[in-house]
Design a protein around this nucleic acid. Structure first.
Lengths: 113, 113
DNA sequence: CCTACTGTATTATGCCACTCATGCAGCATG
DNA sequence: CATGCTGCATGAGTGGCATAATACAGTAGG
């Protein structure tokens, strides 16, 4: 029903994960709008919209005519932001949901690794 | 991040939570489409759409002209469905996200009551 | 300078999920 | 039968998203 996460948000996550996983580090050049678009089978403007989100957060610096670069301290900042967002917004809901259906975090840890 | 959750899904969750919390039990009459709509400040058809999801899952029985009733075994079935959905769909994503940002389930359990 | 690459602004168009207003159909009660 | 409640089918409007076709601005390298 709701497979409908917008493409530009999926692209944002794809990039964010690549950064968090260390594929791109501070100062690295990100794929160009057009190349990443063709690589992902998306429209360049949709990619630009995803990149815009990084700019809004100050995670990339634009060198017009050259490309987009991971800003200084962006990796750390992105990770910190994601952690804070998880603790403040995501986990409370997940925790509530778990309590409601009677699953504890301890239960889940047993069936891991 | 997602304020974009449709109203009818929020309403579905509201009802589901009420059932899981024991407010409505097997055989109980659910609020009518119109009364629940005015109570929630929503459109009756949006409420109907939420109720439709329960019908699709066989969780309610319809008595046209009378109302919607919680089906026999619905409470148990809903709980089982929610658990399965959590384990299959929700938790894997949450777990992946946690690993990526370096938070373990053990970390979260420390800061809980 | 010229070419080829960068990001970006503009405008237009099609699409689809969501929401809602209206009206109809079924049942209980007096 | 009449009233007043139920759920529900139909159709229309809205807004966000994605795409497209251009065009422009900035930079690097031959």
């Amino acid at each position: 029903m709701n497979n409908r996460q917008p493409v530009y948000l999926k692209l944002f996550e794809t990039i964010a994960h690549a950064i968090l996983d260390g594929k791109y580090q501070d100062g690295d050049l990100l794929p160009s709008v057009r190349s990443f678009a063709s690589e992902q089978g998306a429209n360049p403007l949709t990619v630009a919209k995803a990149y815009q989100l990084f700019q809004d957060r100050g995670l990339v610096t634009v060198r017009r005519g050259v490309g987009l670069f991971v800003a200084d301290g962006a990796v750390q900042k992105l990770k910190a932001d994601e952690r804070q967002n998880f603790i403040d917004n995501i986990w409370p809901d997940v925790d509530k949901h778990m309590r409601r259906i009677g699953i504890s975090a301890a239960d889940l840890m047993k069936s891991e690794t």
